[in-house]
Amino acid sequence: MARGQAKPAAGKKSSVPGPTGTREEMLAYYRQMLLIRRFEERAGQLYGMGLIGGFCHLYIGQEAIAVGVQSIKKPGDQVITGYRDHGHMLACGMDPREVMAELTGREGGSSKGKGGSMHMFSTAADFYGGHGIVGAQVSLGTGLALANKYKANGNVAFTYFGDGAANQGQVYESFNMAELWDLPVVYVIENNQYAMGTSIERASSETHLHKRGHSFRIPGEEVDGMDVMAVKVAAAKAAEHARSGKGPYILEMKTYRYRGHSMSDPQKYRTREEIEEVRKNRDPIEHLQDVLEANGWADEAALKAIDAEVKAIVADAAEFARTSPEPDPSELYTDVYLEVAQ
């Protein structure tokens, strides 16, 4: 039963704002968002070629969130999310080669090919996964924050989850403990309006997810997740709150996924027009492109050069992922246990 709230924010193209960051900063965001988009398009293609197996959840449309939030990440701050994780890893600075090679299940993958699309990690990049069970990352991320407080290291755990995951019981168990113990965690809800084929109205009694922390006294805020600068500003404020010992903060990012839930989703639950509407009027990359051009910070040639550079990186990653060998059969039995040091 639809409650008729919180439709995917459609409508007019937002007016082009003046600069809210430096030129270098905004060009870097543009490049990162474009890298994620091109990477995901290529992943979709490799899936179509049978090189990527199983489930593969693309991040196309949501790029501004990982890029904006992680732009304010300090060394040691952790990032954790669900199975729609490729964008977060690229925004953490992981090598596109090792991410793509994990998708193809090869030796050169970040988990030596043993994790796959939904289970990728990089301790060097502070990326803690990559979790396939909806909602699990919320208590794990809160545990990372518990460790930060225990060690008094001044770090924050950025814990991402979807609008569907927001209905999991463990989310509220975690909210309660996070506020009770003032844990330095920023919860980033990526509200892309759908959990597989179920729209948020059909699954949630309160669709304004940033309010979900109210009964735990956790402040929350709705953010335009299609505007990388808005995301960045909100994330900086939330992280400052958490880092200063005031406890958790919830950011509800209003966003939209352009592709199916995973590669095998026929998308019967929404219209082509609905997707086109967002693509045309709210696309995060085009929006930033408009800002860059309007401020005279990048002309068409400059943007094209970035595009060519990104395409080359992605082509190289795809080639690496295609040619990297499958893991050695001996890897079957490694990494089940760590040996006990005596």
Binding site: Q78, I80, Y128, A136, V138, S139, L140, G141, T142, G143, L144, A145, L146, A147, N148, Y150, K151, A157, Q170, E173, S174, M177
Partner: peptide, 11 residues
């Protein structure tokens, strides 16, 4: 879950 997360962070 919090315990496992804390363990992943080295506790």
């Amino acid at each position: 879950g919090l315990g496992v997360g804390a363990a992943m962070a080295g506790l």
